[in-house]
Amino acid sequence: MTLFGDALAWITDGAHWGGAGGIDHRILQHLLVTFAAVALAALLALPLGLLIGHTGRGRLVVVALAGAVRAVPTLGLLTLLGLALGIGIEAPLLALVALAFPSLLAGAYAGIEAADRGAVDAARALGMSEWQLLTRVEVPLGADVIVGGIRAATLQVVATATLAAYISDTGLGRYLFAGLKSRDYVQMLAGALLVAALALLLDLTMAALQRASRPTTRKVPA
């Protein structure tokens, strides 16, 4: 158990803060990679998910595709992309985008599908256009599920972003690999604790966001 104490001491040691390899710098890098990956994936996945949810078309194909993407080991994708693109952040970023994609997509179409059909039909009867239906009824009603998808994707990406350090000088994964390979378990554990804390913090934030986006009129599922 002293190892945990040592790891905490390592984290609080002022010498490990500031500068290029400092904890603060690594946390910032880690967050940037995470947000960039989720944002890029969202650009693709959310519109596609909304479209599928709204039209109900292509669901089976896309669900199967997302399932297949989910089964792709990120490490494999990372090494293949790395060999193609060289070192640096590009390959890990793309691999993380692929990781975030299925959760975002599932959240988006499930959110739309979860919208109360009665409300949708009523809105259609009122003469809303398809676009109005989507933006004024379906998205607001399904917002918490959609945000739930973003939350799941963010959690996966922030945890897996440690792999970025496999081929680039980026993020908290650096402490893990450096520690692992030089038997410096204190450093490794310190890195692990930092990533876990960061993930937890992000998840709590996203959970609050998810609660806030829950439609007030909707019956809250038990």
């Binding site: 790395g82 060999l83 060289g86 070192i87 350090a165 496999y166 081929i167 680039s168 000088d169 650096r174 690999f177 450096a178």
Partner: peptide
């Protein structure tokens, strides 16, 4: 900068 391939193809690249 770390490249975890033990001086392999990615390092050469």
């Amino acid at each position: 900068t770390p490249i975890e391939d033990g001086g392999g193809p990615l390092t050469v690249k």
